[in-house]
């Protein structure tokens, strides 16, 4: 299993070498850490997923002494490693620039959103292909735009408001609940992907 995670890091070496320093530089700008963190995590995780999607790679991985369960599990564990690297970079970048630690709630929020995204994207990609994810998100985006323009014009503001309230809450129970549900979702998604992948014909 560790071998498979290490394999993903070896394969994404160039991506990491380009994106992580860029992320570090971003700390000097006054942008939104949360959006940038989410974007970078998802980009790296999905890049790593897409690299292994060719039929030839499925042949290779399944002919090596790994089980299908291990192959899927390594992707879920690897996603945590990549997100951790992104957050570590943000943390260090901020420490260097502002001499302050990033509030842990922000990091938790990044981790949560990335975990929810992966929980939805991985089973979808194992069932179809990650390239259709783009089409699926465009469809979702269009639906969102329709909702915004026709039904709830201030949806963007409401979401922003909700995020702000969520982050300003110091209700530990609420945090605990959110963390727990995200973890449960992640585990459920992992089990679902294992099932999908073990039946996959390539």
């Amino acid at each position: 299993m560790l071998n498979l995670i290490r394999k993903d890091i070896v394969l994404q070496k160039n991506t990491l070498l380009i994106l992580l320093p860029l992320l570090f530089l971003d700390s000097f700008l006054d942008g939104s850490r949360i959006y940038v963190g989410i974007l970078f995590s998802i980009a790296i995780v999905m890049q790593s997923f897409a690299t292994d999607e060719k039929p030839s790679v499925h042949y290779l991985m399944n002919s090596l002494p790994y089980t299908r369960k291990e192959i899927v599990s390594s992707k879920y564990a690897g996603a945590c490693v990549f997100s951790f690297l992104v957050m570590l970079t943000i943390l260090i970048g901020n420490l260097v620039v502002t001499k302050e630690l990033v509030p842990w709630e922000q990091l938790l929020f990044i981790a949560g959103v990335v975990a929810v995204f992966i929980s939805l994207a991985f089973p979808f990609s194992y069932l179809f292909k990650s390239q259709y994810l783009m089409i699926a998100s465009i469809v979702l985006f269009v639906l969102y735009m329709i909702v915004v323009s026709k039904f709830i014009p201030d949806l963007n503001d409401r979401i922003r408001e909700a995020v702000r309230t969520l982050l300003s809450l110091d209700h530990s129970l609420l945090y605990g609940g959110a963390v727990l549900s995200v973890i449960l979702l992640y585990i459920f998604s992992w089990m679902l992907s294992v099932r999908i992948y073990s039946r996959k014909v390539f």
Binding site: V10, L11, T51, S56, V57, Y59, L60, S63, L64, P65, Y66, T67
Partner: peptide, 21 residues
């Protein structure tokens, strides 16, 4: 599964190695 695959060497007709490394 793993014990069996440990003992097999395989060659396929098309390339199954990663290309960009």
């Amino acid at each position: 599964e793993k014990e069996i695959k440990q003992r097999i060497g395989f060659v396929f007709d098309n390339n199954i190695l990663y290309e960009n490394i």
